Each structure stands twice: as C-alpha cells, then as structure tokens.
Simulated assay, not measured.
Amino acid sequence: MPEPVSPANPAPVASVASIVAIAPIVLRWRGVEPYQTSFDAMREFTAARTEETPDEIWLVEHPPVFTLGQAGKPEHLLVADSGIPLVQIDRGGQITYHGPGQVVAYLLLDLRRRRLMVRELVTLIEESVIQTLAAYNLAGVRKAGAPGIYVPEGVPGTSAAHVGAKVAALGLKIRNGCSYHGVSLNVSMDLSPFLAINPCGYAGLETVDMATLGVAASWRDVAATLAARLEANFGGHALTHLAPTLSVAEAAAPDPAAEAAAVDPAAQAASGGQPPQSQAGDPPAA
C-alpha cells in the first residue's frame, strides 16, 4: 500500500533542470550586431551555462560577412577581394553569407536536458522555417544531404523561376550536449554577395530571398514569425518527451525563464540583451 503524502513524507520533486527544460525559451532581440560579437557571445554563453540555465533564442541581423565552417574550403570563396570580411568559425558546414535583410536565429539549447537528438533538432528547425514560409504563402522543402530549405518543384508564380534555390541555411555546433549557431532565413537582401561564393560548398547553387519570391514582409515580422514557430515546435517536443515525467504541480511551478521571455524586446535591445557569454561534434550543416 503506498505511503501517504505528508509534510514529513513529501512527494518526490523533479529537478530544477527538468522544470527549466519544459519552461518557455527565453527570446532575445539583439538587433543589428557584428558577427564576431554574436559568435563570441554564443561561445561564452555555452561555456558558462549550467544545467539550470534557461535555453535561449537570439534574433540577429548582421552587417555583411562571409563565414567559413569547419568543413569549409577557401576555394569556395570565388572572389579574393570582395571587400566583405571572412570569419573562420566552429559550426559544421562550409561557406555562407550573412547580411542586412536576413533573419538569423541562434539556438542556445541544452539538448540532453530536452532529450533532443541532433537529427531531431535539425528537423524541428527546418520544419519551423517551412511553417514560417507557409505563413507568407510560400512553399519550402528539405533536400536530402543538404540541410536548409529550398524552393520546391511545381510551385506557381514568381517561385517557379527559382526552383531548387536555397532560401534558408542551417549550421550548428554542439558542445557538451548544448547547441549554438542556428538558422538564417533570407527575407529581403542584396543577393549579389552569394555570387562570390559556392554557397555551402555547392557550385552554381542559386540563393534566393522571400522578396524575390514575391513576398513583401519586414525583417521584424518574419523574425517574430520564425521565433514563434521555433518556440512552438521545441515546446511541443518538450511536452511530449518531458511533461509525462513531471507532476501537475511541478509542471505548473514558476520558472526563471518565464519572466525573462516576457521582457520587452525594445528594452532588451537598449540594454544589449546579452546573457553570460560562450562554445560544442557537429551535425551536418549548409
């Protein structure tokens, strides 16, 4: 017969880490920020985090920069003197471009705590991008062996001229079970710098943005839509894999991330919105 629950014999309490894992993800609007600043901050944040550190998503827009991943080859930069800086970084994948008019979402997640395999992480990110595009009546598909999102065949209108073009790129780093780097979605950009590289190592791969596909949407609107889909998809995964292990009281307990997630984006931008700074095998990336 089970023992009665009393102050002297309390019910088991889930760890703080378990509750944090199912809490809302902290969303930080960092605004326009030099790539090196974001890169250093992600590595420092990841190095400093503990099992009780809330997960975060950072939304950023970068000045023009080429980034070369761990699998990158210098020859994939086709123009030696483009005037755009090249930064060697530690994510998976090869070379890509970041610039104004592109939404970059950095995913600072504790995968072990969330019981997320790397393949699941990539799938959830890609699905979030596909759902974001669908919100603007655009179709997007995955491509086997080439992470990211592409314009599919059989699409009508403006998109039909850009079948196979890449609209979103994905690159991650996993360190000590935690992710950083993330996904970039092209909203309304000067696409010419992509002509100076073999995007993600693929010669002749067309890169396109949502504006070219006929969508007039602001950077902030698309960023908010993408963030909402990422939060919903990661939240759904957490509820499926973690909620059954928590009691009703534990799942409803206050958490440190909830208040932080509600911080006014303008106030975050004014203060820099920066948590402790930081760094992680790598999944495929492109």
Rank of each mutant, 00 (worst) to 15 (best):
P2Y: 11
P7W: 09
A11K: 13
A14R: 02
A14W: 01
V16G: 07
S18P: 03
I19E: 08
I25R: 08
L27P: 00
R28F: 01
V32W: 02
E33P: 02
Y35F: 15
D40S: 15
D40C: 15
D40Y: 09
M42F: 09
T46M: 03
A47N: 12
H62Y: 12
T67L: 12
G69S: 10
Q70Y: 11
V79W: 03
S82C: 04
G83M: 01
I84Y: 03
L86Q: 05
V87S: 10
Q94F: 01
T96M: 07
P100C: 07
P100H: 04
Q102A: 06
A105P: 11
Y106D: 09
L111W: 10
R119E: 08
E120A: 07
L124G: 08
L124F: 00
L124M: 05
Q131K: 06
N137W: 01
L138C: 09
I149V: 15
G154C: 14
T158H: 08
T158P: 13
G164Q: 05
K166N: 05
V167H: 14
A168W: 02
K173C: 06
I174T: 00
R175A: 12
R175F: 03
N176H: 12
G177Y: 05
C178I: 03
C178Y: 07
S179E: 03
H181S: 11
H181F: 12
N186S: 10
S188G: 09
M189A: 14
L191H: 08
L191K: 03
I197A: 05
I197T: 01
I197H: 04
N198T: 09
C200S: 09
L205S: 02
L205M: 11
D209I: 00
A211N: 13
L213E: 04
G214E: 04
S218K: 04
R220K: 00
D221A: 11
A224D: 02
A227D: 00
A228V: 03
E231M: 05
N233V: 02
N233S: 09
H237C: 05
L242R: 02
A243G: 10
P244V: 08
T245F: 02
T245H: 10
L246N: 03
V248R: 09
A249P: 04
A249D: 14
A251R: 13
P254K: 09
D255W: 14
A260T: 00
D264G: 06
A269Q: 10
A269W: 10
Q274P: 01
P276W: 01
S278H: 10
Q279Y: 10
G281Q: 05
P284R: 02
P284C: 03
P284D: 04
A286L: 08
A286S: 10
A286G: 15
